[in-house]
């Protein structure tokens, strides 16, 4: 695929700077599910929609050529998280409700609106999405180096794997520690009470 595949005049560009239809549709999907997650009153419904949200997001990641991330997000975001959430309401309670949606908390909307305004103000400073000239892509020292040397130095075709396991193996070590810590944490938090009941 080349960057400028459909260059005929008058046609919607599918692979160029700017939003493409598939991105747009995924955005709509993700946003909708996000809003629904926030607004559903029933926790179970919220969890279910959140799973759908994760799926949509994973699709988006995959479209942005991050298959590993998409995979992980699907497995962890849509899978493990959902199971954890379900386990939690299984062990606790799921309040019965009549109303379908939560009432909107306007002060909170105000706060978040402020957040959006502040952060959105920085948007113009970003390089366009997918712009090859953006510093991350153009940085020959880092990105370029990985792509050029990963295979030779580590023997892994997948540069992500190479970086994950070799160049930034220490992060991965830390990640393992985090998971271990989470295990310890559950032991510490729940140890006596829930699992022995």
């Amino acid at each position: 695929m080349s960057v400028a595949a459909p260059q005929l005049a008058g046609l919607v560009p599918l692979q160029s700077v700017g939003i493409t239809p598939i991105e747009a549709s995924l955005f709509v999907f993700v946003l909708l599910t996000a809003v629904l997650t926030a607004l559903f009153r029933d926790v179970l419904a919220s969890i279910v929609v959140f799973a759908a949200y994760s799926l949509g997001l994973a699709l988006l990641y995959t479209f942005y050529r991050a298959p590993d991330v998409g995979l992980t997000e699907a497995a962890i975001g849509a899978g493990v998280t959902t199971v954890f959430l379900l386990l939690t309401i299984a062990k606790t309670t799921r309040p019965a409700t009549d109303a379908r949606f939560e009432a909107i908390n306007w002060p909170a909307v105000g706060v978040c609106g402020l957040f959006v305004l502040v952060v959105a103000a920085t948007l113009p400073a970003f390089p366009a999405v997918g712009d090859p000239a953006s510093p991350i892509l153009a940085n020959a020292d880092v990105t370029g180096y990985y792509l050029a040397n990963a295979y030779d130095e580590t023997g892994a075709e997948n540069a992500v794997t190479a970086v994950l396991a070799a160049y930034r193996g220490f992060d991965t070590f830390g990640e393992a520690i985090v998971v271990f810590a989470a295990g310890i944490a559950s032991l510490l938090v729940l140890g006596r009470e829930v699992f022995t009941a």
Binding site: P6, L8, L11, L14, T20, P21, I22
Partner: peptide, 14 residues
């Protein structure tokens, strides 16, 4: 019309 099969599939995905 200048679209490739890939583009077609992309539209289908959309």
């Amino acid at each position: 019309a200048g679209y490739t099969v890939g583009d077609g599939l992309l539209i289908a995905a959309t």
